[in-house]
Amino acid sequence: MLEIRNLHVAIEDGSKKILNGLNLTIRDGEVAAIMGPNGSGKSTLSYVIAGKDDYEVLDGEILLDGKNLLEMEPDARAAAGVFLAFQYPLEIPGVATMTFLKAALNAQRKGRGEDELTTPDFMKRVKAGAEKLGIPQDMLKRGLNVGFSGGEKKRMEILQMALLEPSIGILDETDSGLDIDALKIVSEGVNALRSAKRSFLVITHYQRLLNYIVPDTVHVMSKGQIVRTGGKELAFELEANGYADYVTNAAA
């Protein structure tokens, strides 16, 4: 269970406040969607959960299964089960995708006090996962995300999530830059990971993704707060009416 209470966040130098007392609870197995206008703080929320230090947490807490994430380094959070699929996955020239995947997987296992995977076992897992997501083998030999298309980068994020088996997967605008076929593949990849133990926070600007990854709850974010919470039907309402209402409500 992920519990966020009264979260206030500013940019590191304190010049700008982005999250203003945000509250959100995601139960085990729940798929929660956050929708909201650009600039409302969605990516910031995902970064603060994952532990990026460009931000200063002024108040509030974030608990994962009762553990205080804000006191942990980003790698410890990952080992504790946090996975963030980045809105803009980064390119790392010179680090082969395979090398990276192995380093990540083994680092997390080590962080949890588990044994490293044997190479054949690791290869088997990567191959199976890549196949499901339509990732060709030769892509795994190339530098991580180097020269990958937008869609390929997003698929690579989902492959990482599948291998790392987090307890909460945060997807930040995973649908952006995807055509309909890629969207289906990626959604199937996510749906295959749904389980009673694993929860998801799906951040999106458009309702379209939620046709494929059907959420249990939908939250509307505006100016750094959750301003409305409902079921999946809320997404349709937003699609029809746009975000104009929420922007004014929150400002009022």
Binding site: D75, L84, I92, V95, A104
Partner: peptide
């Protein structure tokens, strides 16, 4: 940060880069 968010401790992430 990207590497650390995938579970690599700071020193290991730096070494990889």
């Amino acid at each position: 940060f990207y590497l650390r968010a995938r579970g690599l401790p700071k020193a290991e992430a730096e070494a990889l880069m």
